[in-house]
Simulated assay, not measured.
Amino acid sequence: MLRLTAVLYILVASAVAGAAVITVLTLDLREGWQIGSAFGAGLVIAIPIAALLGRKIYNELNGPKAV
């Protein structure tokens, strides 16, 4: 599950961090620290999202356990 989460993190982090940077630029905040902070926050926010998606996909791929 960790490998699946790591691959998902690459995809989710780029989307979330990119959206955060676009939001900052849309708000006309053009200082380097503002853009960098938005990017860093997007990377941090992507961790639980990737973990949740990884857990859900892993559980669905394994299916219900036969009794």
Results as ranks from 00 to 15, higher is better:
63 G>Q: 05
57 I>N: 01
10 I>K: 00
48 P>F: 13
27 L>G: 06
9 Y>H: 10
63 G>V: 00
16 V>T: 10
15 A>T: 14
32 G>H: 11
32 G>K: 02
65 K>I: 14
17 A>Y: 04
61 L>I: 13
39 F>N: 10
29 L>I: 13
54 G>I: 03
15 A>H: 03
40 G>K: 06
21 V>E: 02
26 T>Q: 13
10 I>M: 12
51 A>D: 04
13 A>P: 04
48 P>L: 12
20 A>N: 13
30 R>C: 03
11 L>T: 10
17 A>P: 02
55 R>I: 05
44 V>A: 14
27 L>Y: 14
58 Y>I: 02
32 G>C: 00
59 N>V: 06
50 A>I: 07
67 V>G: 13
21 V>T: 07
44 V>Q: 00
45 I>A: 15
49 I>F: 10
3 R>Q: 13
60 E>T: 14
51 A>Q: 09
67 V>H: 08
43 L>T: 05
33 W>N: 01
33 W>L: 04
2 L>H: 09
18 G>K: 07
24 V>Y: 03
37 S>H: 02
66 A>N: 09
50 A>H: 00
47 I>Y: 03
8 L>D: 08
38 A>K: 07
24 V>N: 04
12 V>Q: 02
14 S>M: 12
11 L>I: 15
63 G>F: 00
23 T>F: 12
61 L>C: 06
44 V>D: 00
5 T>S: 10
50 A>D: 05
63 G>E: 12
43 L>Q: 09
65 K>N: 10
3 R>D: 14
24 V>E: 11
56 K>I: 14
52 L>V: 11
36 G>N: 09
19 A>D: 00
39 F>G: 08
13 A>N: 08
66 A>M: 05
20 A>Y: 08
27 L>E: 15
25 L>R: 15
52 L>G: 09
32 G>M: 10
43 L>S: 04
41 A>R: 04
61 L>T: 07
1 M>Y: 11
39 F>P: 00
12 V>N: 01
7 V>D: 06
27 L>V: 11
33 W>V: 08
47 I>C: 05
42 G>C: 05
31 E>V: 12
30 R>D: 03
31 E>I: 09
15 A>M: 12
19 A>K: 05
3 R>V: 12
64 P>L: 11
35 I>D: 04
64 P>V: 11
49 I>N: 10
10 I>V: 15
21 V>Q: 04
24 V>Q: 06
32 G>D: 13
34 Q>Y: 07
64 P>R: 14
17 A>E: 04
3 R>E: 14
49 I>T: 11
52 L>K: 11
48 P>H: 12
51 A>R: 09
7 V>Y: 09
12 V>H: 02
35 I>P: 01
57 I>K: 03
18 G>Q: 08
35 I>H: 07
64 P>E: 13
40 G>D: 08
12 V>Y: 02
48 P>E: 11
44 V>W: 03
6 A>Q: 08
63 G>M: 05
41 A>F: 13
12 V>R: 01
58 Y>S: 15
10 I>Q: 01
17 A>F: 03
43 L>V: 14
42 G>N: 05
12 V>E: 03
23 T>E: 09
40 G>V: 06
27 L>D: 14
37 S>D: 04
36 G>R: 08
39 F>C: 12
67 V>Y: 00
38 A>S: 13
31 E>K: 09
5 T>W: 01
63 G>T: 01
33 W>A: 04
43 L>D: 01
13 A>K: 03
31 E>P: 02
59 N>M: 02
56 K>P: 02
14 S>G: 13
